[in-house]
């Protein structure tokens, strides 16, 4: 379910990084909790974001949820598909529905995040 090569946060975001190139998304667990996602608000490319700070939000019909960045860095690309098809966040949160690509400014932050196994244990315990 949860890809081994991703790192995870307690706020249910994931980051996949190769060198200093990272991709950020929300987890399958997060999309399930939110229900049908109707809108995604993302920063502009070039925005500098810090770990733990809000980088945008995802909305269902009756809830808004901030997305907190798992790592610090500069946004290099945002997923344009989400503006037209926010529903893919429900169907493919770990793949096609990535949110932003980011140039990591502190790759060491990755070590502080959870592995897939740790995350699964975490959401199991949360339930």
């Amino acid at each position: 379910m949860y890809p081994e090569n991703f790192r995870y946060t307690k706020e249910h975001e994931w980051v996949a990084a190769v060198g200093d190139a990272g991709t950020i998304g929300i987890t399958d667990h997060a999309q399930q909790e939110l229900g049908d996602i109707v809108y995604v608000d993302l920063p502009k490319a070039g925005t500098h974001i810090e770990q733990g700070k809000s980088l945008g939000s995802v909305e269902s019909v009756k809830a808004v949820s901030d997305v907190y960045s798992p790592v610090s860095g500069e946004v290099t690309e945002i997923n344009q598909t989400l503006a037209e098809k926010p529903e893919i966040l429900n169907s493919d949160p770990h793949g096609a529905a990535w949110l932003v690509k980011i140039k990591l400014s502190a790759p060491a932050e990755l070590a502080g995040l959870m592995s897939a196994a740790e995350y699964e244990a975490y959401i199991g315990a949360e339930k």
């Binding site: 809108y39 909305e59 269902s60 019909v61 009756k62 809830a63 808004v64």
Partner: peptide, 12 residues
Amino acid sequence: LATREQHIRREK
């Protein structure tokens, strides 16, 4: 589009 409104987004 009620997520703009106070009963959902409160202080934001």
